[in-house]
Simulated scan of single mutants.
Amino acid sequence: MPRRSDALDHATPGAIAVAALRILDEEGPQRLSFRTLADRLDVSHATVQRRCVDLAGLLDLCTEHLAAQLPEVPAGTDWAEATEQRFRALYRLLTAHPGLLVLRGGRPWLGRQLLARLVEPALADSVAAGMTVTGAITAYRRMYLLTLGSAAFVDHRDPAGVTSASRAALAALDPEEFPVLSGGLADVLPALTDHEVYYGALRQLIEAARPAT
Rank of each mutant, 00 (worst) to 15 (best):
L145W: 01
L170R: 03
S150D: 11
G161E: 04
Y144C: 13
H156M: 13
A171P: 05
A169L: 15
A169W: 14
I137H: 15
A165H: 05
S164W: 08
A168G: 05
T132L: 00
A136V: 02
T163K: 14
I137D: 11
A139M: 02
M131Q: 02
R167D: 11
S150V: 04
A139N: 01
D158R: 12
A169H: 10
G130R: 00
D158L: 06
V162K: 13
A152T: 12
H156D: 08
S150Q: 12
G130S: 00
G149F: 12
G149I: 09
G149E: 11
T138W: 04
L146F: 05
A139K: 00
D155N: 14
M143I: 01
H156P: 15
V162L: 08
I137R: 15
S164I: 04
R142G: 14
V162W: 07
L146P: 09
A168R: 06
A168K: 02
P159K: 07
S166L: 12
T134E: 08
P159A: 10
H156V: 12
M131H: 05
Y140L: 08
S164C: 13
T134M: 10
D155V: 14
V133D: 12
H156S: 15
V154P: 03
R141E: 10
D158N: 10
G130H: 01
A171Y: 06
M131K: 01
L148I: 06
A151S: 14
V133M: 04
G135S: 00
R167G: 04
T147M: 12
R141N: 06
L145P: 00
T134C: 05
P159V: 15
M143S: 02
D158S: 07
Y144S: 11
V154T: 15
L145Y: 02
G135R: 03
